[in-house]
């Protein structure tokens, strides 16, 4: 279960994509920690940098992307590791689960062969019996019967393939896994089954998980803590229960309000769309869309502050409401909103 050892620690981490024009600052100074056995949820609208952050943590960025800041995996300084050392860590200690399992399964190889290849790559000299027992155990945890061990990928349904992929990641017993929208393509019932399994994982494997999703329901269901990302920054992070009960950042609040759930009685949405990350707005990046924005929001970027609720938030309005800052009368004048055209949306 959850313990106090920090598995991942990021300080002012940045990831950008070099393009012909200005670089796209997809992750622009984020700091957070993930503890052993903890599930941290990462939410935010499309294009806010969630996948970039997830892949950046694993060093799985495309050519032309760069990172800086500080990133530690246990005591290892990840930004200083050689390429080869990083590669060795991936798989064995760090894992990635993503949306399309088929792209990673070879149609001509039996499931048993997939497991055997994975285990042999990372544990040279591992014996046949151990391969089989570890593989079957991983399959069992993901609810796949041992009778299917010698089947081919096409003999499995979509949900089973996704569970296979997860089992293939877990068989190496990684300390930290990034799951990038692992259930987005699946049906409700199958999604619920997998969420349950991910939630129960730490009982078996003590794996820490960064769970990226658009679906706030999934976060509420599976995560201990949640980080809300907007335009390359983590604007709120805290205990999942607290953040859902008492969102401190206007973006978190509006995201929750615009989610259509079974208890929805009216449709709400956030005006406008997330900014172009090669040229984000000055001050608080959310100010052009924020219902609470004041003069100060456009002029100065808010800094991360721990609010009385316990969540850490970057927002002038939250700081002011909770008495963490003193703003001049001038600074507190509500920001006149540029009219956002109805269809300026994501």
């Amino acid at each position: 279960m959850k313990s106090d050892d920090v598995v991942i620690s990021a300080r002012d981490l940045r990831v950008w994509y070099g393009t012909a024009g200005l670089p796209v600052r997809a992750v622009d100074g984020v700091s957070f920690e993930i503890r052993s056995g903890e599930i941290l949820g990462l939410v935010g609208e499309s294009g806010c940098g969630k996948s970039t952050l997830g892949r950046g943590l694993l060093g799985l960025l495309p050519d032309g992307a760069a990172r800086d800041g500080e990133l530690f995996f246990r005591e290892r300084d990840m930004l200083r590791l050689k390429r080869r050392e990083q590669h060795a860590l991936r798989g064995r200690e760090l894992g990635l689960i993503f949306q399309e399992p088929l792209t990673r399964l070879n149609p001509l190889m039996r499931i048993s062969e997939h497991f055997s290849e994975t285990l042999k790559t990372h544990h040279r000299g591992i014996g046949k019996d151990e391969i089989e027992s570890r593989s079957l155990e991983a399959l069992r945890v993901m609810g796949i019967p041992p009778t299917r061990f010698r089947a081919y990928p096409h003999e499995f349904s979509g949900g089973m393939r996704q569970r296979l992929m997860i089992a293939l990641t877990l068989v190496l017993r990684p300390a930290f896994v990034v799951a990038d929208e692992p259930t987005t393509a699946l049906d409700v019932l199958v999604e619920a089954q997998i969420i349950r399994m991910l939630h129960d994982l730490r009982d078996t494997y003590e794996t820490s998980l960064l769970l990226i999703t658009h679906n706030l329901g999934i976060i509420a269901e599976a995560c201990d803590r949640v980080a809300v990302m907007y335009a390359g920054r983590i604007v709120e992070i805290g205990d999942a229960h607290t953040v859902f009960r008492a969102p401190q950042h206007p973006y978190t609040r509006e995201l929750l309000r615009s989610t259509i759930s079974l208890s929805t009685t009216g449709l709400n949405y956030i005006e406008g769309a997330p900014p172009d990350l090669s040229d984000p707005p000055p001050g608080c990046r959310f100010h052009p869309r924020c219902p609470d924005a004041m003069q100060v929001c456009e002029r100065r970027a808010p800094v991360p502050r721990v609010q009385p609720s316990g969540s850490r938030t970057e927002c002038w309005a939250a700081d002011h409401a909770n008495g963490l800052v003193t703003l001049t009368e001038d600074e507190r004048i509500p920001l006149a909103k540029e009219v956002i055209a109805l269809a300026d949306e994501a």
Partner: peptide
């Protein structure tokens, strides 16, 4: 089975 954004409700 619908995951609801309500931390008090569990699957």
């Amino acid at each position: 089975a619908i995951p609801e954004p309500d931390p008090d409700r569990m699957l």
